[in-house]
Design a binder for these strands. Sequence first.
DNA 1: AAAAAAGTTGAATTATATGGAAACTTTTGG
DNA 2: CCAAAAGTTTCCATATAATTCAACTTTTTT
Lengths: 110, 110
Amino acid sequence: MATKNKKMKMMTLDQMKDKDIGKVGTPERDKYEFDLRMEVLGDMIKSVRKERNLTQEQLGELIGVQKSQISKLERNTKNVTIETILKVFRALKANVRFSVEMNESEFKVA
Amino acid sequence: MATKNKKMKMMTLDQMKDKDIGKVGTPERDKYEFDLRMEVLGDMIKSVRKERNLTQEQLGELIGVQKSQISKLERNTKNVTIETILKVFRALKANVRFSVEMNESEFKVA
DNA sequence: AAAAAAGTTGAATTATATGGAAACTTTTGG
DNA sequence: CCAAAAGTTTCCATATAATTCAACTTTTTT
């Protein structure tokens, strides 16, 4: 077996991220996490649009914006307004739900 | 029994909303639904903050903004960017997750 | 019932998201 | 391989979200 009797340096994904991107809470890491989420959001728009068999131009027409705008939302996305997100997904007849969960254990003590 | 043999006009909540606010898809109704969500969002910030036993000023310090800004986010909320939402809830050590669900049946045909 | 603390509001400013137009690049269909 | 369609990018204008400051109101504490 490959793993037997082999003292290897192991690293969890979190450890790698801490090392390569920066620890949680640092501005760099926060930015990374944020950019990641924005990218996912853009991908979500794109994939739902595809699912609906719409071109960017067609989706744009539904909402009343240019295709370039849709392109920007799908790729260039740095930050968006909730309103915009809802507008887009409503046009795609998809429901957006956002929920907040707080881990009970933390903080509660202080 | 009160309901027996009594031809009453009944109305579902949705029917009432259609009638009083406007049918789904109209600008008025859309605005209503949006405003509602924004209000809920503001309430969520407030209630999580309370849960953490923080004043607006303290939460503001965590993020790096004035207490007046927090107040506005909790009440005056017309529209917000994702970034702001995430910033606030991260400071509150709460997780925001948003998901998109599309009802398979619809649209798929066209 | 004062004083202090917490929250709200309005006016003003700054930062940036939204958007259009047009040129450009990539992908797709013949 | 060529043409058309789809998607991207850049430059620019405009709208509006984010923010502060200071005065004001409401709530809490003593």
